[in-house]
Structure formats: structure tokens, C-alpha cells
Amino acid sequence: MLLAPENTRFSFALLWTLATFSGFLLSLLFIEIGEKPDIGVLEATVGGFAIALLQGCLLKQPIFCIRWILSSLLGWSIITAIGIGALGWIVPSTEFLPLRILYGAIYGGLGGLGIGLTQWLAISQPMAVVWRWIFVSSASWAIAIPFGSVVGIILRRLTHLFLGEVMGLAITWLVVGILTGINAHKLRS
């Protein structure tokens, strides 16, 4: 039985979210969560590869999958090299909540913009879809980083364990997966 377009869109968004979150979990086998100076370009590239590989498996054409992976690696490398950092694997150094929210929104928006701009290289869709993806990437990270950071600091304060911060990063990746997954179905056509 064929799925209705709404069900297909929801199913793809769910798969995208699972792929993104699973990619983050896979990346933890290779990357140690840390503060900004601890995570370099190599670690960001390895983490970006884990995420992009699982996301790419959902895309229709093999050449698109390869371009998606390569453009994502480029994005993670660039934003880490220019000092924004390996978003999603770094814990803010400040424990002052308002600064975490502000810096998270700024760095998240800029990092998401960088990743979205490089992923544009892989998207062979009308410019409206491309620009929407760049905006969605930027907005998703600008929302997810502060949200995950707040959850992380609360859990760390409650448990007195750094694991709380890691859980906050997991929440960040889950939110990014959901927000980008809502629009990612348009990349497949």
C-alpha cells in the first residue's frame, strides 16, 4: 500500500532524525566530548562523517549521497577551523545560563549557516529549496544549541556529573535532527 504524502514526509523526517541522532552516538566512539579548544578539525571531520554517512543513506541517488557526505565534511572542517567550533561535540565553558543561551544561539546560527552553505554544494534542487535548507540549518542549530546547553547545565548541576553535559549535547542533536528532518524530505526529489 502506498503511503499518503503526509505519511511519507513524516516517515522520512523520523528516519532523518534517527539517522542524525544515531550518527551522533556513533561519533562518540571516535570523539571525546570537550570544550572548544579540545575538539579540532580532525575530530569535527570524523564526527561530521558519521552524521553525514547515515543521513546520506536516506538520500535517493548514490552520487547525491557522496556529494552530501563530502559537502558536510567541508562544512564541519571550515566552521571548526575558523573558530566557531565543532558544534554538537563541545560543551560551553561558561556556567552562566544567559551567556550559554546567547552564545549558543549566535554560534549555533553561524555554524548552521556554514554547514548549510556547504551542503548547498550537494543539493541539485531549485534555488528556493537550497535557500530554505540554508535557513533551516542555521535556525535549527540556533535553537538546538541553547536548548541542549540549558538541559546540559541543569543535568550537570543536579547530578554533579559531566555526563549531564553529554546528555545536553544528545538533546541538541535530537532537536537538530527533528528540525532539519521536517524539511529534509525535499532534498530527496
Rank of each mutant, 00 (worst) to 15 (best):
T8H: 11
T94V: 10
V46M: 05
G148N: 02
I82W: 04
A122F: 03
G40R: 09
F96V: 13
F21Y: 10
I63M: 13
I78W: 12
L113G: 08
W173R: 02
S72C: 12
A4H: 15
E165Y: 13
F135R: 09
G112T: 03
T172W: 05
H160P: 02
I115W: 01
F64G: 04
G114F: 15
F21T: 08
L161F: 14
S72W: 15
L18D: 00
I123P: 11
L163C: 07
L26V: 11
V175R: 00
T20R: 01
E165I: 06
L169H: 01
G75N: 11
L74R: 02
A50H: 01
G75K: 04
E165W: 11
P98F: 07
H185F: 14
T8V: 11
T118E: 08
A142H: 01
L58I: 05
L28M: 13
L99D: 06
G116N: 10
W16Q: 02
T118S: 14
V166H: 11
V41R: 12
A86E: 09
G177M: 01
I78Q: 10
L73P: 09
L99K: 08
V151F: 09
R156Q: 14
E35S: 14
F162P: 04
L26A: 15
G75Y: 09
G47H: 01
G116W: 07
R156E: 14
L58T: 01
S149H: 07
V151P: 06
A184F: 04
E6G: 03
E6L: 14
I69W: 04
G111H: 05
P5H: 00
G48L: 04
V150H: 02
A184K: 02
G181R: 01
D38Q: 15
Y107N: 12
E95W: 02
G85H: 06
V150E: 03
Q55W: 01
L187V: 12
S22F: 01
W131R: 15
L179I: 11
L161P: 05
R67Y: 11
G23L: 00
M127I: 15
L174S: 00
P146W: 07
A142W: 00
F24L: 08
Y107V: 12
S22N: 02
A13G: 09
A142N: 00
I154W: 14
I153L: 13
S27W: 05
S27I: 03
V91A: 02
A52L: 04
P62V: 04
R67S: 12
L28A: 08
G152F: 09
F30Y: 12
N183T: 13
G108K: 07
W173T: 00
V136C: 07
A86R: 09
R9I: 06
I31L: 12
K60V: 12
E6C: 07
S93N: 10
L15A: 15
R132Q: 13
L187R: 02
S71L: 05
A142S: 09
W131M: 15
A142T: 00
I154S: 11
G111E: 08
W120F: 13
G104H: 08
F12R: 00
S77G: 15
A81N: 07
G85Q: 09
L74W: 05
S77W: 13
Q119V: 08
W133A: 11
F49D: 03
S140R: 02
F12S: 03
L113K: 04
G152P: 07
Y107C: 09
R9Q: 14
F21L: 10
P98A: 09
I33L: 10
W89H: 13
I66V: 15
